[in-house]
Design a protein around this nucleic acid. Structure first.
Lengths: 338, 338
DNA sequence: TTGTAGGCGTTATCAC
DNA sequence: GTGATAACGCCTACAA
């Protein structure tokens, strides 16, 4: 039914091996016969069977990207970066994510059983020993995203959360002259929130500001909950030296909206900063000062690393750390008193 | 190096075919030998070679999803829906998108050459004859997203833009009592914009309202440009019977922000509605009345159709049309005068 | 119920 | 420069 290399060979009146040669190393075959073969290929609409090919070459040119979730701009951008880099390296990209309660193992198995992967880029919410175990058992080149295990024997790419958060808090204190900074994080167990909070606390100490416990809140990264919180507290927060450090842009947007609803003047009476620099950071009024997290870059670097490891399996493990960038807009303008 | 079926056979002291049987049709083999084989498989950590398997079965359990772009919530949600459904059907999902100037053909070829796909779900910006041509030449089961060609010989899933837009405009006119509706679209050539504009115009006529040419604008779906436009025009637009119909939420958000900046009272003096019901629709003040476009559903349905077609290649072509849903929030509240 | 043998479509290793 | 032929790892008649 499907046209095979033998059909081409017959039509071009050459042997199978010659056809194979013009496909893989066309320069070592006589131009005239090569031409004949090319014609035959075109006429028959021949396309090499990838299975047979893979069987010989032990290579599928497919790599996988496993994510803990597919909701929101964060993952979407990682996919975008990864997809672009995969294509540049000549690979196709399989996307998978844990969903509806199944855990990382399930998805790792599902993906690697069914698919024919040359490698795997993995980001999981909890990269515990067990996950890393199944990962190595797969005997597949792999790289880990956004999980910092110093000295780990595998490639990893991560974002220096601390550096970004520190720059942000320093900006608040030094440029804005903030003396009181309210921290609104995501879940208390979230790794990003933890990293950002740590930096927040350190910078506060460095500046000799005492961090008050009642100024720290843990929510869920969502606009609505942040809005509600701020609706209740904003009046108490407001003051010339006050700022809110929200652990992501969406919550920052909620806080801004609530503050406006409370007739608080932004940024004069309350500064607000976010984190991530997602699309909405440009859509708040005033536009949001935030930290740009290179999400697409992360996907890109992960794939670059992965493809390199596939090519050179024994090269030493690499750890790429991406620097976030402070983006100053208007939600936390210049210090209110000189 | 890698453990093959022969190794398992040797270890279990059975023939290769027996091992193959316990893998594929375990019930037809004696429980005792089956047990022996199972043990051997586990001890050796054997996993069938997917290439060899595919070579026989002519099946990879991988399907592809080709998108015109990977930016933004729209595509991200499609991927999410598609990914979930693929997994439910036992398939892995390869994602690819056109990028940096290359066209649909390039990506279609790249994907189908390298990968080993059982089928393809395709969404392209311009599904002209040429694309459909290469698509059929691939001799792959495929389904088309968001491109309405009545009577086309392939499966397709699309969103009934017109129905959503009509419901929205009718809401504006009947509930709000709008007498003047400003239309702010994306690019004039964009299919979605065209469909939404058509519905807009029809409903206006039906209500006996004359559509004024100077009330129709074509932008680019972005917040910033919509903001600028509204910054200039909002004062002129404002009025008790006035509404703005933005062709997506992001532009609607821009218009709201600009109107607020112009000290126009929303929704009293100007109603604003969007389209898509993305995340930002809940983040504007006031929250946006809009039309929910079932993006994830689209990805999901596309994959459902695709997998069905792979299973039954000769079933008649199906055309699934998804209904958007009017979401009433506050950006265009009840009619201002009774 | 189990084993033997042929074939799936390639690429690689030889000879010629 | 070209042509046989043996892998690659698996599935499936067919025979036992």
């Amino acid at each position: 039914m499907s046209v095979s290399i033998a059909d081409v060979a017959k039509r071009a009146k050459v042997s199978i091996s010659t056809v194979s040669r013009v496909i893989n190393r066309r320069n070592i075959v006589n131009p005239k016969t090569r031409e004949r073969v090319d014609v035959a290929i075109r006429e028959l609409g021949y396309r090499p069977n990838a299975f047979a090919r893979g069987l010989m070459l032990k290579k599928s040119d497919i790599v996988g990207l496993v994510l803990p979730d597919l909701h929101g701009e964060f993952y979407s951008e990682i996919i975008r970066g990864a997809s672009a880099q995969a294509r540049r390296d000549g690979y196709n990209l399989v996307i998978a994510s844990t969903q509806d309660g199944d855990d990382s193992h399930t998805i790792l198995h599902a993906v690697s059983q069914r698919a024919i992967l040359d490698g795997l880029a993995v980001m999981v919410s909890e990269l515990n020993g067990r996950v890393r175990d199944t990962l190595t058992k797969l005997r597949l080149p792999f790289v880990v995203l956004d999980d910092d295990i110093p000295g780990a024997p595998h490639d990893s790419v991560l974002i220096d959360q601390g550096s970004g958060a520190r720059a942000l808090v320093r900006h608040l204190i030094e440029t804005r002259g903030a003396r009181r900074i309210i921290f609104v994080g995501g879940l208390e167990t979230n790794v990003d929130t933890i990293a950002r909070f740590k930096a927040y606390r350190e910078e506060l100490e460095r500046a000799g500001i005492t961090a008050r416990e009642q100024d720290v809140f843990y929510l869920d990264y969502r606009y609505e909950t942040a809005y509600e919180l701020a609706r209740e507290r904003a009046c108490e927060w407001a003051g010339p030296g006050s700022c809110v450090f929200a652990a992501n842009d969406e919550m920052a947007a909620g806080i801004i909206a609530a503050a406006v609803a409370c007739r608080i003047k932004l940024p004069a009476d309350l500064g607000v900063v976010g984190f991530e620099d997602t699309r909405i950071a440009r859509m708040t009024s005033p536009p949001l000062t935030t930290v740009r997290v290179p999400m697409a870059r992360m996907g890109e670097e992960a794939l670059r690393l992965l493809c390199r490891r596939i090519a050179e399996p024994d090269s030493p493990a690499v750890r790429v750390s991406l620097e976030p960038e402070l983006i100053v807009r208007d939600s936390c303008a210049i210090r209110s008193r000189e």
